[in-house]
Design a protein around this nucleic acid. Sequence first.
DNA 1: CGAAGTGTTGAAGCAAATCAATTTTCGTGG
DNA 2: CCACGAAAATTGATTTGCTTCAACACTTCG
Lengths: 221, 221
Amino acid sequence: MLTRIQSYGARGDILAEGEKQKSIYVVLQGWACRFKLLPNGKQQIVSILLPGDLSEPFGVTPHFIENGFSALTPVTLARVSLEDIREASVRDNISTALWWDLLFTTALERQHIVSLGRRTALERLAHLLCELHVRLSLVGQVKEHGFEIGVTQTDIADILGLSTVHVNRSLQDLRASGLISQEGRWVKILDLTGLREEALFDPAYMHLDPDVLDAIDGLGV
Amino acid sequence: MLTRIQSYGARGDILAEGEKQKSIYVVLQGWACRFKLLPNGKQQIVSILLPGDLSEPFGVTPHFIENGFSALTPVTLARVSLEDIREASVRDNISTALWWDLLFTTALERQHIVSLGRRTALERLAHLLCELHVRLSLVGQVKEHGFEIGVTQTDIADILGLSTVHVNRSLQDLRASGLISQEGRWVKILDLTGLREEALFDPAYMHLDPDVLDAIDGLGV
DNA sequence: CGAAGTGTTGAAGCAAATCAATTTTCGTGG
DNA sequence: CCACGAAAATTGATTTGCTTCAACACTTCG
């Protein structure tokens, strides 16, 4: 099914807001995001898509997408037409997978609401790193609790609802307190327990198998 | 299907976080909410449920709910067992309705993210009122652009990620600028266009029929 | 009538935004 | 391979939107 492969450069819009959608995308490599643009020019990134994620969980019910879809890093996508999906949901049991993706996405987005509403800048940042740590572990992109953040500090600001300046300072705080280290884009979590405490992070919301979770916590793959 | 009717008082928890879920609820009267509690005591309301809304769109895939479900006002619910839903999805075409509910919920929650991330306190409040105006219109609870807000200012604070004090002051601002009027719990939108401008509100995200939208804008039912 | 919950007000403090450079990194072409 | 320009990261100074604290008033209801 994953035949039509396409590549996009970083910050390249793949779908503008409100554009009619004839197919959905699977992220194969790189990071992408869903975002919203406000009339006053401000931007908010609604969700981050990592390799393996689907552009929209609504393959089954065609509709207008009401948010933009854009590359955060150079990204490789596979385009799947709605017909293919509908066929596949009958043939194989793809629909269960779609439901699961949807459940996962919703859980992340709700946690995002909590972060924006009730966590401080430092907590938000720490939480984002904790979440990325787990999600990237699931796709094998974490080594010794270290991973590459594909995004710029400006992007992080748009994710966390902060200014770039403040993101920069919060990152420095995390480094200074010895919770993480950073060499260029390579971030390493030095104190996982400490960072999670700082973030008020509880991985329960991701609905992962306890064994999987233990593996992530223990070794960082 | 809507046989098992239950009532709850305001602020009564219906389901605690992480509690196993054997059925889903349909709100018949009153307002309810999904919320998350942080270990530091702070609380964030993730979504508001009005009459006609479903407690969880995940009736089809049984799972842990990872957020609490609580009454905001005295509320009447109908409990539907998962078996009933599964039966009905085969018999009638309920599953389409479930998808639609899910689509709607997701759209609202994403807009919530945008509000918390990139709107000021005043804009958030205005946006909330605009959204409630539309949603309540859909269930016939708006008269001449006026409706009853069931929730306290403290609840609004937990929805918008603000302090109660600031909610109070922002409400006063909206009244002072002549955008709304308020008599007790009865809120009336005096200048719909103005309020929407203030809120950066664009109803497009709710996927409503243009005619329905016009009806709401024009008369307020 | 009193108590609890809700709404309102004022003053003070602080987290984060904004503004404005400056430095560093990085990609690209000469 | 270096030079250049642009993007990204960093820093300092200042401002502000919102929180916090603390008191007080109003409403509702047993």
